[in-house]
Design a protein around this nucleic acid. Structure first.
Length: 1031
RNA sequence: GGGCGAUUAGCUCAAUGGUAGAGCGCCUGCCUUACAAGCAGGAUGUUACUGGUUCGAGUCCAGUAUUGCCCA
């Protein structure tokens, strides 16, 4: 048994609770998957975070979404596995480490590969530890026993297997191609690691003289220094200005090299002069042109971004220094025509933050078409994988179609070293483009092969480069499950169910995984790809490390709790794929939206406290299911709502409507359950009808427990905490909400008609409350209210809900009448024997309130004076005190009259107090009195101007007010209401008078409009009558 | 330049083509024994703009403006 709830504080302590349950889940192996257990498998692999430091809000968002899906499916009975892990992020980590080294005045070369890698592993341990800790604090339901890292033993083996297989299939090749060279990290980077930035640059126009004449052609470039590597000038063969020049030669200035003028369709005649210089070794387009036209490839650059021996006088200069110098020299030679300001995009290295240099070098490539085509076929033929939302399918498809061969080698140390060994003894002890190599599983295997080819004395050296990180990430969905072995996990959980990730890495990652998976396993690695948006900051900027606008989720978790943060993130999502914006004040570390969610957790907490306080120490199980025959109207209503919401939530989550589900729960818990049901049930819990009380307890317990289950995937910690208390489940039992069955909607309890009827009661209560506020009636004061309707149905509903109205609108006496015009109808005339004593007194009181007021006033004054006199007598010996008290007595009388009798509202309050005093003596009317007071010989309230009136549906709500009221204000309010109603009437009748609308609109829409019009007309009539009487 | 989104209350965002809602903020009144992190009530909109389709458009179409992202 757990501690009694009475000891619980009124505020939920997230910090303590979260730590407790995170520990509990892990220690009890709650999320440990068992491939031998029954149930359809539901497996999700985590998009592995980079070990580059810590998680940011985007990760928190993503894991909140995944966890909601995973916990939901687990509770739905799937054999669920969420597999966690991290990614080694070769470039990113190496950049961080080199920065650290630089700060210490060292380089990695000085340190050496081995020591550098030691350092990297140390970093990995720290960062990985931080990340894992953060994931734990987020309360994710992952199976930690299966945690993986892209460079751990198993995954490294998978990488080796994949590489060797692809190489043997001739899908991996080594070749000399143009790559994106990052001079900062001194490595090739993939197209994806390049970020195009718009810069304000220049367009330089140069003259290249023709070899055979005094004429020249004019070319334009944004990178003048590359002219040193030009091997042609190209024009469009259809360009009349130049086509006669094709085949002629020009003399390259500064270099004095003769280069041809070629015709190539690629040249855009409208760009610049229509005549372009061609540098095949330093520009991707020129590279293609060079291959098409058999041009020379002259590399003018070293790997550090300085110019090499091919640059002549500029050798050794940095590329940007050389740029200036080349321009100056051309100007001196008279070859500079002009310099234009020019805005263009420059490729920057994502990591190195310097402009990327297209550089010709020898790299390893994956032939992509044989991989992308099967993946494309699956998409086109089977719509696999299915993207949610669908529009991302096109993005994914376009990418697959336009893929180029994938450069997979990186000139880095941190990562999977390429399993190729060079027979360097064949090429003078160094690796060159022509050094023979062996691809093998190990150095020993490579040596065996090498000896066979080159003899015993062959010297081997492993390729120093590592593989692109995405090569190993591409294997993630199956390598983590044990591939390339047929492990039980792989057999049971592969292919996985859903991949949840951001659209920004569809290219990077999703396409790599589908291609690799199709090739190696023959299957798409996941059924569905759920694409979520990005978390933007308060300025609508994407949160990222480079923008330095990220927010550490732990700050908000510490302040508001994990559940609050997660819920705030998830409820922001609509549909899917939409970006969300997180409100955040960087000065105070506060977030309004997370605070709102925290308030919601607190609301749930307190509602649960209330329920617990009223269950007489029993659990939902002990109380049992409520007997349907004993249910009160409100019980049936909340049960209908509960099952309705259950159905909606299941539908939503099944279609990835996570934000919608979260919002549904918010409305249900705060609105239906707390604002209405709990308020309605209070009097029954306090009352002495044991049967009704028990039904209320059972319903409360049942709905609360069910709601905790519904909410669990979104707010795992607080629901677990409350569930354990409500069910009195000891922690040591190992029982957990996380493994309970997710509620299943019982359609026999869903009653839309009942819900609609209940809405009328709610609206009636609201209208009375509204009128009370308008009339400035104090909250504690009980009033009289009169409800009139022409509709028998409405009348019936109002009568069944009478105690609710009295209870929640603080109505002492409620009359539910037929309007005067129909009062003759017998069914509404109730035998006077049914009119109880209280009703008589109320009628008497309201009829004779003025007399009563006067009597009360006199009585009170007399009592006051009597008390004063008595006091004076008792203390008359004290000097001056008697005079003082006399003054007090007189003063109080004056004060009393002014305070209690002068104003209308105050007199009314006094009246009400007297009435309450009366009820205390006579007794409270039973809240579940079978019939409201019906009085066909209606008193004159509705004839009096001293009545405030509102309408709901076609129900007229009247509250008689004692004494005079502010007629002007009342009139203004009535006029305002009437105006609103008249506007509605005008709009509706306009529509209904339109023959086309009546003809063409669906009949139910027309009928709805007719019903609404008739309702508004009734409302208008009621309001107009009131207004007439006020005049 | 091509593509994909977005633009609705002061702010953040909702609304199967049927006549606009929520949270926060604001105003009024309440410490009503679950909750002041709360309760009750209230005010607030030419749905960016211009046309078109339709009986009917925030929603569909075309264009314009602003803005964000992706790809060149």
């Amino acid at each position: 048994m757990t501690a009694t709830i009475a000891n619980l504080p009124s505020h939920y302590d997230s910090t303590a609770s979260e730590a407790k349950w995170q520990k509990f889940w892990e220690e009890n192996h709650v999320f440990k998957a068992d491939p031998n257990a029954p149930g359809e498998p539901y497996c999700v692999v985590i998009p592995p975070p980079n070990v580059t430091g810590s998680l940011h809000m985007g990760h928190a968002f993503e894991t909140a979404l995944i966890d909601a899906l995973v916990r939901y499916h687990r509770m739905c009975g799937y054999n669920t596995l969420w597999l966690p892990g991290t990614d080694h992020a070769s470039i990113a980590v190496q950049t961080i480490l080199e920065k650290q080294l630089k700060a210490e005045g060292k380089t990695r070369q000085e340190l050496g590969r081995e020591k550098f890698l030691e350092r990297a592993w140390k970093w990995k341990a720290e960062s990985g530890g931080t990340i894992v800790n953060q994931l734990r604090r987020l309360g994710v339901s992952v199976d930690w026993s299966r945690e993986r890292f892209t460079m751990d033993e198993g995954l490294s083996k998978a990488v080796l297997d994949a590489f060797i297989q692809l190489y043997e299939e001739k899908l991996i090749y080594r070749g000399n191609y143009l790559v994106n060279w990052c001079p900062a990290s001194q490595s090739a980077v993939s197209d994806l690691e390049v970020e195009n930035q718009e810069v304000n640059g220049h367009l330089w126009h140069f003259r290249y003289p023709l070899a055979q004449s005094d004429c020249y052609v004019e070319v334009a470039t944004t990178r003048p220094e590359t002219m040193l590597g030009d091997t042609a000038v190209a024009v469009n063969p259809k360009d009349d200005r130049y086509k006669h020049l094709i085949g002629q030669m020009v003399i390259l200035p500064l270099v004095d090299r003769e280069i041809p003028i070629i015709g190539d369709e690629f040249v855009d005649p409208s760009f610049g002069t229509g005549c372009v210089k061609v540098t095949p070794a330093h520009d991707p387009n020129d590279f293609e042109m060079g291959k098409r036209n058999n041009l020379r490839f002259i590399n003018i650059m070293n790997k550090d971004g300085t110019l090499n021996e091919n640059a002549g006088e500029f050798q050794g200069q940095d590329r940007f220094v050389a740029r200036k110098n080349v321009v100056r020299r051309l100007e001196e030679e008279g070859m500079l025509v002009k310099i234009e300001d020019y805005k263009h995009t420059v490729p920057y290295s994502d990591r190195g933050k310097v402009p990327v240099e297209p550089l010709l070098s020898t790299q390893w490539f994956v032939k992509i078409k044989p991989l992308s085509e099967p993946a494309l076929a699956d998409l086109d033929q089977k719509n696999s994988p299915e993207f949610v939302p669908d529009r991302w399918t096109k993005v994914y498809r376009d990418w697959l179609v336009s893929l180029k061969d994938w450069c997979i080698s990186r000139q880095l140390w941190w990562g999977h070293q390429i399993p190729a060994w060079y027979a360097i003894s064949e090429t003078g002890g160094i690796i060159t483009d022509t050094t023979p190599f062996m691809v093998a599983r190990s150095e020993a295997e490579a040596r065996e092969k090498a000896i066979a080819l080159f003899g015993e004395n062959v010297q081997l050296e492993q390729d120093p480069d590592v593989l692109d990180t995405w090569f190993s990430s591409g294997l993630w969905p199956f390598s983590t499950l044990g591939w390339s072995d047929e492990t039980p996990d792989f057999k049971r959980y592969y292919p996985t169910a859903t991949l949840v990730t951001g659209f920004d890495i569809i290219f990077f990652w999703v396409a790599r995984m589908t291609m690799m998976a199709k090739h190696f396993t023959g299957k798409m690695p996941f059924k569905t790809v759920y694409i979520h948006g990005l978390v933007r900051d308060e300025n609508n900027k994407k949160m990222s490390k480079s923008s330095n606008n990220g927010i550490d989720p732990l700050i908000l978790i510490d302040k508001y709790g994990t559940d609050a943060l997660r819920y705030a993130l998830v409820r922001e999502v609509t549909g899917a794929g939409q970006d969300i914006r997180l409100e955040y004040n960087r000065k105070t570390d506060e977030s309004a939206s997370v605070e709102a969610s925290r308030n919601f957790t607190n609301k749930l907490w307190n509602a649960s406290r209330f329920v617990l306080m009223n269950l007489d120490g029993k659990t939902p199980d002990q109380l049992g299911l409520p007997d349907r025959d004993q249910l009160d109207l409100s019980d049936r209503w909340i049960l209908s709502r509960f099952h309705q919401v259950t159905q909606q939530i299941r539908d939503q989550i099944d279609h990835y409507g996570l934000g919608e589900s979260a919002k549904l729960l918010y409305e249900f818990i705060w609105g239906d359950f707390c604002d209405w049901y709990i308020e309605l049930v209070k009097s029954r819990l306090l009352g002495d009808d044991a049967v009704s009380r028990k039904a209320a307890q059972q319903t409360l317990a049942y709905v609360l427990e069910g709601t905790l289950k519904l909410l669990h995937p979104f707010m795992p910690h607080i629901t677990e905490e409350i569930w354990h208390t409500v069910t009195q489940t000891d922690e040591t039992s190992g029982q957990t909400l996380a493994l309970q069955t997710y509620p299943i909607a019982d359609s026999t309890l869903i009653n839309p008609d009942l819900e609609q009827q209940f809405d009328l009661l709610i609206d009636t209560i609201r209208t009375i409350r509204n009128l009370r506020a308008e009339a400035d009636i104090k909250p504690g004061v009980k009033i009289e209210a009169i409800l009139q309707t022409e509709s028998e149905k409405e009348e019936h509903i109002l009568k069944s809900g009478q105690p609710y109205i009295q209870d929640l609108a603080k109505v002492q006496t409620l009359r539910i009448n037929q309007p005067q015009t129909q009062q003759a109808r017998p069914e509404v005339t109730v035998d006077s024997s049914e009119t109880d004593l209280v009703g008589s007194i109320a009628t008497f009181l309201s009829t004779h309130q003025r007399v009563l007021l006067t009597i009360g006033c006199i009585l009170l004054t007399l009592i006051t004076l009597k008390i004063c006199a008595g006091l004076l007598e008792a203390v008359h010996e004290i000097l001056l005190l008697s005079t003082f008290l006399e003054l007090v007595g007189i003063g109080y009388t004056v004060w009393f009259i002014k305070q209690k009798l002068w104003k209308v509202g105050d007199r009314q309050q006094l009246f009400s107090q007297i009435e309450q005093f009366k009820t205390e003596v006579v007794g409270e009317p039973r809240p579940d009195a079978p019939e409201p007071i019906v009085n066909s010989s209606s008193p004159s309230e509705e004839d009096s101007a001293q009545t405030i009136v509102g309408v709901v549906g076609t129900v007229r709500v009247a509250i008689p007010l004692a004494g005079l009221i502010d007629l002007v204000a009342l009139k203004a309010k009535t006029e305002k209401d009437l105006k609103k109603v008249e506007a509605e009437i005008q709009a509706l009748s306009g529509r209904l008078n339109n023959a086309k609308f009546v003809d063409k609109a669906p009949p139910d829409v027309v009928q709805t409009a007719r019903d609404a019009l008739s309702e508004f007309e009734t409302q208008a009539e009621i309001l107009q009558t009131r207004l007439d009487r006020l005049d």
